[in-house]
């Protein structure tokens, strides 16, 4: 009897352990284009993962619904090894395109892609397609997030009354660093007297520390704040409580604090996805790198209509967007 309960408890434990890991499913049939995506956080994180999810929905709608484009998504694959297993799984299930939505998945893609030469893979944000390593079925994509960062920064510089602006970032690298650098440059160009305090909290997920970083900015006198990555929901709450203005990026964060969010830089990957699908249709499975920019509308500024942005600041922002598109302002790092 005791042995039985032991076995039962082991079974239970295994069930508990495995229940935490999501699995993917695929189906065959009337040959829709099939995409599988692995994301580091939840598809509704109001940030990076949400941007690819919403872009896929958009492409799906444009192509004519699930009969034409089928996609599955494995969320919360922050552990790269788990993501690697999921990617391999999807590839062996015959998906046409498997996307690892995060530059951290580059290493596993480089290992897996050569084993599935008929499957196309994509990852970002990065420019590395591994063509130089003889791999021809990996696409890369990146966001020139410093562009919208610059526009947001210009508005922040124009709107601050205390001349102190606070920024909460995750880790000083990649896309986050691009955005923050652009933001700081934009704020400084508009308002040389503004002091822009940047706080890197060392984590993409520590909501409590992001919140406290925002509190610190408020204490230091900031009346305008910005931030990037999914842990900033903690900082937005602080902005709301203290009536400080907030600038978002990656996805719309307006719903969290409609009174204080001024604008968001939105990532729209649908153009990149459509282009990749076209290329795959023509037999090109990889080797190209894409960018979303203000010019190709992969990046755009979404204004919060509930916030009454002064007309002259809106005009200023629009002029800045135009200047970046035409190249009159260069914000390249």
């Amino acid at each position: 009897m005791r042995k039985l309960t032991r076995i039962a408890s082991v079974v239970l434990l295994v069930a508990i352990l495995t229940s935490a890991c999501g699995g993917g499913g695929g189906s065959s049939g009337d040959q829709p284009f099939r995409i599988a995506v692995v994301t580091p956080s939840a598809k509704n994180d109001l940030a990076f993962s949400q941007s690819i999810y919403e872009s896929l929905l958009k492409v799906q709608q444009a192509m004519g619904g699930p009969e034409k484009l089928e996609f599955v998504i494995s969320e919360n694959m922050f552990v790269v090894d788990d993501a690697g297993a999921a990617i391999r799984d999807y590839a062996s299930q015959g998906y046409d395109l498997v996307i690892g939505h995060g530059s951290q998945y580059g290493g596993v893609l480089q290992e897996i892609a050569p084993d599935f030469p008929k499957t196309s893979f994509a990852h970002g944000t990065t420019v590395d397609t591994f063509v130089d390593k003889g791999i021809t079925n990996v696409f890369a994509y990146e966001a020139r997030s410093e562009q919208g960062g610059y526009v947001n920064g210009v508005m922040a510089g124009a709107l601050t009354k205390s001349n102190v602006i606070g920024v909460v970032g995750p880790i000083e690298t990649g896309d986050a660093k691009l955005y923050v650098d652009g933001f700081v440059a934009g704020a400084k160009s508009q308002n040389p007297n503004a002091q822009v305090n940047v706080n890197w909290i060392g984590s993409f997920s520590d909501v409590a520390l992001a919140s406290e970083a925002a509190q610190t900015h408020v204490k230091a006198g900031a009346d305008v704040m910005a931030g990037t990555a999914q842990m900033v929901v903690g900082a937005i709450g602080v902005a709301k409580e203290n009536n400080a203005l907030w600038f978002g990026t990656q996805a719309s964060q307006t719903s969290l604090a409609p009174d204080v969010v001024v604008a968001n830089q939105i990532y729209d990957w649908s153009g990149v996805i459509t282009e990749i699908i076209d290329l795959i249709g023509k037999g090109t499975l990889g080797g190209q790198a894409f960018q979303i920019t203000l010019a190709n509308k992969g990046l755009y500024i979404e204004y919060n209509t509930a916030y009454s942005l002064p007309d002259e600041v809106k005009d200023l922002a629009d002029a800045t967007v135009d200047a970046i598109v035409t190249g009159a302002i260069s914000v390249a790092p």
């Binding site: 994180d45 997920s205 520590d206 909501v207 929901v233 709450g237 969290l256």
Partner: peptide
Amino acid sequence: SLSIALLNVFQQNLTSGL
């Protein structure tokens, strides 16, 4: 204390190792 007092928000993996 995190979700309804300090942060007033819920997100997956809110505690993040705390």
